[in-house]
Amino acid sequence: MKNDIILSGVGGQGILTIAAAIGMAALESELYLKQAEVHGMSQRGGSVHSNLRLSDKEIASDLIPYGQADLILSVEPMESLRYLPYLSENGWLVTNSKPCINIPDYPDIDKIIKEIKKNPNYLILDAVKIATVLGSPGSANIIMLGAASLFIDIAVEYFEKGIQKLFCRKGEEVVKVNIDAFHAGRNYALNKGSSGK
């Protein structure tokens, strides 16, 4: 088993929380893990990404080679396109649809969506909207994780355990909100499951 995942977004959007949740879940299911993060200057609102590798065998490189990522999980639509050379032929692109516009030359969003839809396997969701309907607008990232979890070879119970561990210091209430958000995202993906061509 091997899952190579690229997480992408904009500095400050919290992709490291998603990475940590997957990391915890991987630990629970006794997989090997390597996760390269971006710290420093680009965290000030620049493009950020993280390479996350899971395997049942020992992993050599901290970085994913070109054409080998099984999943790009992006919390921002334009950023999802930046890492296409890394996506494998059968890989999935899962992205939030809400743009983060903090640059003057942000392209037309329709153009971006069109480009995303050129990929054989994609899933676009409005995580912020789902989160708002759920009554927990702060949990969009965990909704994204829930949606993408369909394409990660870790059982749901381990994700739940991982989320539990990650948020337990913030109290039972926060844990529950996030587990609900995870399932909301996952159910959305299950229902939409056919968006791949």
Partner: peptide, 20 residues
């Protein structure tokens, strides 16, 4: 041999860091 995925679309602008 390196197997590249698809290309990054040409219209993508850089997103440099900025002051908060």
């Amino acid at each position: 041999k390196v197997s590249y995925g698809s290309k990054v679309p040409g219209f993508l602008p850089e997103r440099p860091p900025a002051l908060c």
